[in-house]
């Protein structure tokens, strides 16, 4: 049991260390433009991706670095992408908000809120015709629950029993606005009932809880039972984007969030179960070492070649 939790801890540390390094590189200059970090939300991709099959299709958002990493996309290629290098996972075309790595079952981030949900329905639909057992997972935020495309996708998937898992990362804010102010019924999972699919509000700061529900939802989906909505409760410890002044936070809010965040919680649990502190700390060190090495390697790669900027538009 503690072995799996140590593996979760490592997977979460990889994401956090990556995101912290990204923040540094963004503030120091090598990364340019808007960046949305998932610090505090790592347990969701770690738990969910653990039970995905390679052929499953995953659609994330601009806050999707953690999902890409959890899906096994090499972090060096992600750093390179963020720094506009030729070795970037999209050769510099995608950037922070638009990573894609289909060969890792990572069908991409998306920086249009809600846009991934109908596309995931299509990936699931294709599975009906190609003989695969593919499920599709679409990830979006609480705010995206108010986007028309998401409503349409949920009904589409439900009406046709498509193998789709709708993963809503409810971090309580849509950019600078609390979701509580933008809906009348705050339990977003309850909306699932209206589409005739199961909906669960789960602890998104617990990778094990996410894993459990995700496995279940995938099983139902593959058996022809249709889609599921998982509302994963979490918090981002950082701003919406790098540079967000976070004026919307209440006094003491961040302290409370830090006490509940997934890495601190998992460490506390492991300690309580008698795992030596040194072993726990070594996990962080290992992750940070890997991340530093990947960032350095990415930084050493050449920039994308401007002469190629027009390539790949058509077949």
């Amino acid at each position: 049991m503690s072995e799996r939790r140590l593996a979760d801890l490592l997977a979460m540390w990889r994401i956090r260390a990556f995101e912290e390094k990204v923040r540094d590189l963004r503030l120091e200059g090598p990364i340019v433009g808007s960046v949305h970090l998932c610090i505090g939300q790592e347990a969701i991709p770690v738990g969910a991706c653990d039970v995905l099959e390679p052929e499953d299709a995953l659609y994330a958002t601009y806050r999707g670095h953690g999902w890409a990493i959890a899906r096994g996309v090499p972090v060096e290629a992600l750093f390179a992408e963020l720094m506009g290098r030729a070795t970037g996972v999209n050769g510099g075309r995608g950037g922070s908000a638009y990573f894609t790595a289909a060969d890792h079952g990572f069908h991409g981030e998306n920086s249009i809120v809600g846009a991934g949900a109908p596309i995931a329905c299509g990936a699931a639909l294709a599975g009906r015709f190609d003989g695969s057992d593919r499920a599709a997972v679409t990830v979006f935020g609480d705010g995206a629950m108010n986007q028309g495309a998401v409503h349409e996708a949920m009904n589409f998937a439900a009406a046709f029993d498509l193998p789709v898992v709708f993963v809503c990362e409810n971090n309580r804010y849509s950019e600078l606005t609390p979701i509580a102010d933008m809906v009348r019924a705050p339990r977003l999972a309850d909306r699932a009932a209206a589409y005739g699919m199961p909906g669960y509000r789960i602890d998104g700061n617990d990778a094990e809880a996410v894993r459990f529900h995700m496995r279940d939802a995938l099983e139902v989906a593959r058996e022809g039972g249709g889609p599921t909505l998982l509302e994963c409760m979490t918090e981002r410890i950082v701003g919406h984007y790098i540079g967000d002044a976070e004026n919307y936070r209440k006094p003491g809010e961040l302290d409370r969030i830090r006490r509940r965040e997934p890495i601190a919680r998992l460490k506390e649990g492991l300690l309580a179960d008698g795992v030596p502190a040194a072993e726990i700390d070594a996990v962080e060190e290992k992750a940070r070492g890997e991340i530093e090495a990947a960032a350095a390697a990415a930084m050493a790669a050449p920039y994308a070649d401007p002469a190629t900027a027009r390539e790949h538009l058509y077949a």
Binding site: G84, R93, G95, A97, Y303, A304, P306, A309
Partner: peptide, 16 residues
């Protein structure tokens, strides 16, 4: 701009 999508990498975008 030429008829192409816009790449995120500044070196690529500058070329367009």
């Amino acid at each position: 701009a030429p008829d192409v999508r816009m790449p995120a990498a500044p070196v690529l975008a500058q070329a367009l």
